[in-house]
Design a protein around this nucleic acid. Sequence first.
DNA 1: ATTCTTCTTGTAAACGTTTGCAGTCTTTGC
DNA 2: GCAAAGACTGCAAACGTTTACAAGAAGAAT
Lengths: 337, 337
Amino acid sequence: MDRKSATIQDVARVAGVSTATVSRTLSKPSVVARTTRDAVLKAVADTGYRVNATASNLRRQRTGSVIVLLPNLANTFFAQILAGLASVLTPAGYGMLIADTQSGPDPDERLTHYLASGQADGLVVLDGTLSPAALSMPGRPPVVCACEWMGDAVPSVRVENERGAALAVGHLARLGHRHIGHVTGPGGNVLTRTRLEGYRAALDRLGLPMRADWVLEGDFTMDSGAAAARVWLAMEDRPTALFLSSDEMAVGFMGEVQRAGIRVPEDVSVVGFDNIEIARHLSPGLTTIRQPRTDIGARAAELLLGLIETGASSAPSEVIEVEFIRRSSAGPPPKGR
Amino acid sequence: MDRKSATIQDVARVAGVSTATVSRTLSKPSVVARTTRDAVLKAVADTGYRVNATASNLRRQRTGSVIVLLPNLANTFFAQILAGLASVLTPAGYGMLIADTQSGPDPDERLTHYLASGQADGLVVLDGTLSPAALSMPGRPPVVCACEWMGDAVPSVRVENERGAALAVGHLARLGHRHIGHVTGPGGNVLTRTRLEGYRAALDRLGLPMRADWVLEGDFTMDSGAAAARVWLAMEDRPTALFLSSDEMAVGFMGEVQRAGIRVPEDVSVVGFDNIEIARHLSPGLTTIRQPRTDIGARAAELLLGLIETGASSAPSEVIEVEFIRRSSAGPPPKGR
DNA sequence: ATTCTTCTTGTAAACGTTTGCAGTCTTTGC
DNA sequence: GCAAAGACTGCAAACGTTTACAAGAAGAAT
């Protein structure tokens, strides 16, 4: 193998054919004759030729990569979705460019920037707080949302958020709880709204009261879970169980109340959402709603590749099933409640 | 703005200059006259021109991206390093391609593949189990290791692992522990070796016994921490304190012993390594050694960019400070020990 | 006035592919 | 035996930049 890697010209020379034939052998082998095909493949092997992706992309007017826009890379949740995305994109020959929407000043502007920059053949948006308005640009590359979503303009892959919330509340009710609180995600987030709605609807169906002061505002982070715990601790009339809109918040909540001497689930029951890896390693194990994050990523990638190949700009969204995971953080309410 | 984005030709025409001048205005403005420069910049603004990275890369014989090889994307630890890498690479105009070494069959082969593929201007390796032999290829792009390292052939960014271990053991000893165990990382890993060595040396300096059966084998995961806990629970003569080579293992360990009714730190003291986000949210808060992961990523990226720009193939490695974080998972040993 | 710098700009040749078009050579149908 | 169809292959023109080289203009030095 040479210092400089072989080009298609080298292969053509060695095989005694034109570069066109080499290119065709590699991209659509069916159109080239058996014997020449073999000769070319041998020459490819001999020279150690690898197609230069940059040149190929330039000629084919594509970039060979997709951009993933996410709010925060340093978050388990997104990392696993990334893994799912990568599992599809890499084999398909697409690179995955990561962009953190939080690091810059104006997230919306960054979205517009990436759409216009022509740096990518498609975008995956994991940050539902971005404004759909930015997407009105003509001739923009296809976009897919994963987990969160932005109206109906953009195809998305999401889970059954309402049903997840209903499962959580139903489990608590079945254990005997009649005072069930909720800790939400950040305001304005679709997940926040949908899960809150699921919680509300489930209480309604079960004939249980929903008290406004039992709905605490969080933002999906552990810190906000801990903050909610402090609010809960200070309450006069505490709910005996809480459904938290994310496992991270549940972790923060449990840690904080436990450090205050409260026992879970004897004194308070907790149900989370996500089933992050740590959930089963806590003490007690965290009862939660599983979202298959790797699958979500993989499906989103497939959806996007479909859009890219067909040139279509819209596609049906997908909803993936959630699963109730029973562990030990939720139990019967304390006596007398 | 047109449907098809403007090319350098369009800008040249609008500004009434040649494409060469446009290119120069954008890359080294100093060589073009003030007045023409302004005209070009105005034309750029008017046409909404953005340079086509693919064409630019082809001409400049580079790819504009670096590949990050990591063992497991779905891991908090790496995600945060990625964030650090991205914070430097993105502003510098480099894309970041993620490759999971575990997903394929032979990790070493994948390293070789990426080195030879010419898909990237440089590589960041986060998986120290790869073999340095793969790097002997001539004319390969520069490589930098982060966290882990591979002999002296490859420049790396790492933390003071031995000192970290010594801090952990020192703290436990100061609390009065004389029976200090250790849970290691996976065999063959440099971090495993170095931290084990730090643990051993610290015990030695303190005149404390080191018993082979108190050194348990783990692999940095929560599961392996839980497994170590089961081994510890079954011991006749248990150490009163453990230093675990990663926080994830400490989480797994604490959860498992707590579920068995053991209290931390009253019955057993625990110190981890990494200071992952959850450490302060556990109950009790996890005492640990902080590694600044975002910094590690950022430094590694800078090191790599340096190598790429200068064309050098080696550079001095960097060692970043660790910090002892005292929380509540380590306390005095039980009476009588 | 002539030659030499110093600045600034344009010309045109790459970079390594892919692909429409046209040409050659077989094969087939009549 | 000839025309038509089919199967392969090569030619050459893109794709959108960057940059070595040359050339022109304007001032400086002789």
